[in-house]
Every structure is written in C-alpha cells, then in structure tokens.
C-alpha cells in the first residue's frame, strides 16, 4: 500500500461521518465610513510612513521620498508619469530584462510599486504580481519600499479584500508595515530581513 492510500484510508476510517454546518455570522462586508483615513491611521500604527495626495501631487511626493543618490527599482508596469519628479537613478525590472539579485540587494536601493487591494481595518497592502507590482523579490530585497495606493483600491475588511482579488492563484503577498520581529523579549523591532522602511502614498481624486 502506498503512503498516500494508507493515509487516506486511515483518515476515512477515523473521521466522524456527520456533515458540519458552518455559521457565517461575522461581518463579511467590513463597511468603514472613511476608508482612506482608517488605512492611513492603521498603516502609521505599524511605524510606516503615510502620505495623502491628489493625482497631481504624486510626482512631487515620490520625488521627495526617492531623492537623488538612491537607486529606484520599478516593475515594468509602473507609469513613467509617477517618477517624473524623481532625481534618483531609475531601473526597470521586466520579464525580458530581469534585474540581478545583487542589484536588488545593493545598498541605497528603493523599490516603487502599486498594489492590487488595500485593507483599511488592518492596514494591509495586497500585492499579486500585477504589472505595477512585479515579482515578489522586488519588494523584498531592497531596504526601502514605496507603495502607491489608489483610493478606489481600498476596502474595509479582509473578506472584501480577498473577494476582490482577480485571481487568487497568482503569487500573493500581504504586507502590513515594515518587516519586524518580536523574538527578543517580545519587543517589536522593525526591519529584519524585508524592507526596513515602508512608505505608503495614498492617491485620492478628492484630495486637494
């Protein structure tokens, strides 16, 4: 008997035969009055930077967050218009011309991406490898991650966020603040292996 057949047979013999009804009395809609403000507040709670702007102000803010002397890495789908105010060195990563691990892990590198969905109540950004997010390593090896969130991408709670993903079988990363550890006396230390700095820029059409 193979291990597979053996394990399945044992589980079949051991289980309770009765079907189980699953109650769903929790809040699945997660409605939040001011999603933008709640997201901003919750992301700040994780010691990440948060800026709010209208579309016209985005290049200027990114120019300040990504100053001269740094190298900015971007997935191929990041609009060029975002970085028109950037004095930093710009590098694009694409399937045809992927950047090397050494380039991503070098000192002074920031990565600039968008996201697919953001969750206001938990201050979470969800990346699914879409054109403006790129492969997972891009947002992992550089020490600084700048993520642009459009207001219409923000939902209240996690159930709404997962339901909104276009394809859950794409490689997903949920990011809530910078990399952290509480392994030493449960004291939270920001920045272990992932980016030690996270800046979130929320672009809101209604913002002046």
């Amino acid at each position: 008997m193979t291990a597979r057949a053996d394990v399945l047979a044992r589980l079949r013999a051991a289980r309770a035969g009765t079907p189980v009804a699953v109650p769903r009395a929790y809040d699945r809609r997660g409605e939040v009055v001011d999603r933008v403000s709640v997201l901003a507040e919750r992301v700040r709670d994780y010691q990440a930077g948060v800026q709010r702007t209208g579309p016209a102000g985005l290049p200027e803010i990114l120019g300040r967050l990504l100053p001269e002397g740094r190298t900015v890495i971007m997935p191929a789908g990041v609009p060029e218009q975002w970085v028109t105010g950037c004095q930093a060195r710009l590098r694009w990563d694409s399937d045809a011309n992927p950047l090397s691990v050494a380039e991503l892990a070098a000192d002074g590198v920031s990565v600039l991406t968008g996201c697919t969905v953001a969750v206001a109540l938990t201050g979470t950004l969800i990346l699914d490898g879409g054109p403006d997010q790129g492969r997972r390593l891009l947002t992992l090896l550089p020490d600084h991650h700048v993520c642009v969130v459009r207001a219409e991408q923000i939902v209240g709670g996690l159930p709404a966020a997962l339901a909104r993903l276009p394809d859950p079988t794409r490689p997903l990363t949920l990011i809530s603040g910078p990399s952290a550890t509480s392994d030493i006396e449960l004291d939270r230390v920001d920045g272990v292996h992932g980016p030690r700095r996270l800046d979130v820029v929320i672009v809101d059409d209604d913002h002046g």
Binding site: Y46, G123, R170, P171, L172, T173, L174, G177, G194
Partner: peptide, 18 residues
Amino acid sequence: ERMNPYTSIWTGVHPGDG
C-alpha cells in the same frame, strides 16, 4: 497584532517568480 507584517500565498510554480 491586527495583521502580521508578511503573509505569503503561493500556488504551485509561478514562472519567473520564485
């Protein structure tokens, strides 16, 4: 915490990523 810093979800092999 409201949410842990990183959650990874992957499905088999993702060409060009991982």
